[in-house]
Nucleic acid binder design. Structure first.
Lengths: 202, 202
DNA sequence: GCTCTTATCAACAAAAATGTCAATAGTGAA
DNA sequence: TTCACTATTGACATTTTTGTTGATAAGAGC
């Protein structure tokens, strides 16, 4: 009669549903920023989260729902980051420069820019609805400079956001591609906005 | 005894290897611009090209090779488009404005900007090598303004390219997201460069 | 302790995507 | 016309990815 020693097994972790979802989404976000959207496979996300893939399905229903939840989470984080910046400068020019820096910071960490690109490439209307609301909220609460013609202010915000996303997504690669330090593009773009936007408001 | 009428069947097309590859890549490019990189599945590409998926494999070996070939084809097209522009203006400012417009045109059709984002998101070194050479070629042959400090010129090119890619990728969506005509961002960005770059060269 | 809920997981099943192969059929050359 | 070459294809096979199910176990409440 053989005596089989029960293999030592790590005790099964049991999280609250909220913690479990958070753990999964955090792992998914890591995968997204490190390997790109195509790496968000059910099995890979589960492995990155250290759980069985069935558990992922238990909490989200499908891998598509995981992706949607991740998008929404990242959009919320991005909005929060932009809105959480400190006191605002009094003069319009100061506000503009500050707003630009906030934008570049928000899209500076690779995740946010990649999120935007992912949204653009896949472009599903359901997800874009939330993005639209986020844009509205940020513009209304944080970026709209006072003392400037609203139409002009909108133009400034629009081009600033696009530049920030472009730098966030392509800045490092292109800088290095041209043999420059990785944050070269970021500095140049900030200079561009700092020097031009006040003139536009005048 | 049943008489089975042979079903009418379209005669089997037989292309030259070059034409077959071209047909497949054209279909893949359509898929990429319309549905995004994640739509480049073997079966879907074959269906879009109107052939059996085995034929795709016969010509390319694997779906990954199709994707690589498509990237290289699109990079070549992009470089050709940028280099093919007409006579260049004599003065540095004119050259700069012209170069910017060429860039915005090249990244204006959705495909090129999506290609760049795709490259960035997936980021494989093998593919990036070709992108690097393309960037070098374009800068050397077309975009480098004469009569300007080379270091400054490089800065101008770098920020211009990033802005052009940002506008190409996000411009339409963001413009409409803010309730403006779809080419609003493009116009604003061109204005931005037109007004700033000559000043930087001075 | 006991029970009840349910987060967790292994095993299985289904679907999707990719790849293999032998047969078929255009096409140019002999 | 005949033949050799090979682009093309349907059928099959393999791998990858996703989803299902029943059993297990962690923890909360009693």
């Amino acid at each position: 009669m053989s005596i089989v020693k029960t293999p030592a097994r790590a005790p099964r972790a049991r999280r609250s549903p909220e913690a479990a979802r958070e753990n999964i989404l955090a792992a998914a976000e890591r995968l997204l920023t490190e390997k790109g959207p195509q790496a968000l496979k059910l099995t890979d996300v589960a492995a990155a989260a250290g759980i069985a893939h069935a558990t992922v399905l238990h909490h989200f229903g499908s891998i598509a729902d995981v992706q949607t939840a991740l998008m929404e989470r990242m959009i919320r984080q991005l909005v929060a980051q932009i809105l959480a910046e400190g006191a605002v400068a009094a003069d319009p020019q100061g506000r503009v420069g500050q707003g630009a820096r906030v934008l570049f910071d928000a899209f500076g960490d690779r995740g946010a820019a990649r999120l935007a690109a992912w949204l653009e490439l896949t472009g599903e209307s359901r997800r874009l609805t939330m993005a639209r609301e986020a844009v509205r909220e940020v513009i209304a609460n944080r970026l709209a400079p006072e003392g400037v013609d609203p139409a002009v202010a909108e133009d400034m915000v629009l081009v600033s956001v696009i530049l920030a996303m472009g730098v966030g997504l392509f800045g490092r690669s292109l800088s290095e591609l041209m043999g420059r330090p990785p944050d070269t593009a970021r500095g140049l773009a900030l200079d561009l906005l700092r020097r031009l936007l006040p003139a536009e408001g005048a």
